[in-house]
Nucleic acid binder design. Structure first.
Length: 262
DNA sequence: GGTACCTGGAA
DNA sequence: GTTCCAGGTAC
């Protein structure tokens, strides 16, 4: 049974965990171990923060030494009925997976793109904010494709042509606002130092705890346009890992109107 | 069992 | 910093 906390008890427990210093990674070898271990220490189940108004709160945890982006949440683009990632992006704009014929079948395709609102990717993709129609769209511009992707561009030309995406994947402002409202309205953000012993056993020190409240949709849109917040497609033929919004390190407070170190 | 979602990283 | 990639769970 998961432990039930009041908000004050949860904060007190997080402080206790911070003051424990180094704790062993409970899921050695698993990249998600930093979050799993914290959940174990709290005695809670995954994605189920057992506090009052739990639906308004999120617990996010991150290695402080990582350069990787923070995944905020997943959300498949509209129109969802078209299943646009596996049916269009992967089939028409995908490429042969690096491990096709090795780990995967010869026919394995890949469509992995971390897409910015500030610059186009080398395959010509960009996130564009459409404030008039209140949506976040994905745009493709063949003219912006880097020469080193020329072979791939030829394949796109043969399969679907070089015009703008049709339809363009998008997320409505209201969709994002409501999604963020269920995932990011209030967040406990925990940063962990990492140490690995000579025997390869990994330890964490959960030494920084921030309480972030009051989600800001304007901060969200500005972060996209500034190139701090990315849309990340992540599909291969046998597994669509899903489309996610990912944030640069240390930028999470931009998405909130209030921040408090606890 | 397929889809959408979760946690992330290596070069 | 950009490109491309990973195992796992809820329903």
């Amino acid at each position: 049974m998961p432990k039930i906390y009041t908000k004050e008890q949860l904060i007190a427990r997080l402080r206790e965990i911070r003051d424990m210093g180094w704790v062993k990674n409970a899921r050695q070898g698993n990249v998600g171990g930093v979050g799993n271990t914290l959940e174990d220490l709290l005695g809670i189940e995954e994605n189920n923060l057992p506090i009052p108004n739990a639906s308004e709160w999120e617990l996010k945890c991150q290695r402080s030494n990582t350069t990787s982006l923070t995944t905020l949440f997943h959300c498949e683009p509209s129109p969802t009925a078209l299943r646009i990632v596996p049916s269009i992006l992967l089939l028409k704009y995908g490429w042969k997976h690096d491990k096709a014929g090795k780990r995967y079948p010869l026919t394995e395709m890949s469509f992995r793109q971390t897409i910015s609102g500030a610059i186009r990717s080398d395959r010509g993709f960009k996130v564009v904010i459409d404030r008039k129609d209140r949506k976040i769209t994905i745009s493709f511009d063949a003219k912006a494709v880097d020469p080193r992707q020329a072979d791939w561009l030829d394949s796109v030309s043969n399969k679907v042509g070089l015009d703008e995406l049709n339809p363009q994947p998008y997320w409505g402002f209201d969709d994002i606002y409501h999604k963020a409202g269920t995932k990011l309205l209030n967040t406990f953000y925990v940063l962990a130092d990492v140490r690995k012993n000579s025997d390869g056993i990994e330890f964490f020190h959960y030494n920084r705890i921030l309480k972030l409240t009051k989600f800001s949709i304007d901060g969200w849109l500005d972060s996209i346009e500034d190139g701090c917040l990315y849309v990340d497609f992540d599909a291969r033929t046998g597994h669509n890992h899903g489309t996610k919004f990912r944030l640069k390190q240390n930028e999470l407070p931009r998405l909130y109107k209030a921040i408090e170190e606890i």
